[in-house]
Amino acid sequence: MIIAAAREIKDSERIFVGMRLPITAYGVARLTHAPNAVGLFESGVARYEPADGMLYTMCDGPNQLDAAWTTGLIQVMGLLSGGRVHAGFIGGAEIDRFGNINTSYIGDTDNPTVKLPGSGGAPDIAAMAGRLIAIMNHQKRRLVERVSYITSPGFIDGGDSRKKAGLEGGGPAAVITDRAILRPHGPENALHLSSIHPGHTLEEIKENTGWDLRSAPDLSETPAPSKVEMDALHQIDKDGFWR
């Protein structure tokens, strides 16, 4: 999952990284195919090298030591709003067929069944980054037909509805799960199964998806992690926290 996420980062790109899995993916990408990538954190941090040491939040000391830039939120998120960020990672409680993500309310907003913590900077990243890469566990209750609240927009109602809402570019480029990679396909921009991770099956993936998941014409198997990628992961994640 982390290796698949790392492969989504291209060299020299400016990436909105986020915490947990994405930060490890960023580290692996820097050590392998993307040595000139730049990591951005919404609290007001830009880094070249990933932080040395365990991070619970992007504001922890190790993420500030030897940073490229420590500044304010508006400066860093302004780069995003100004169209200067190539890609961003986000996670979420629920994602739907069109890549819309919910981290706010399950059920009605006035009388929710579950009140989730909320958006953070995810809507801004989903709206303004050149590409959105979502990471989540592949479970039927997470990959749903329609989210009950769009915290962070994907292709909204599909087709050109994202453009109509005023968002010219961007949108989900990949949804990386522990079983597969989903990508938008066709005029509807619905998420299709693009690649199956080694050891998983089409049947199992369809069973664990909350909508009738179709396969992209070029459906393939996700290449297994190379030795170089695994070595990089071991170097970044010394304690094996994310493995």
Binding site: M77, S104, T109, S119, P123, A127, M128, Y149, T151, A165
Partner: peptide
């Protein structure tokens, strides 16, 4: 005037 919350239900709620 902002673009970064377009498409989000934050505008509705």
């Amino acid at each position: 005037p902002l673009k970064s919350i377009l498409g989000s239900d934050i505008i509705k709620s």
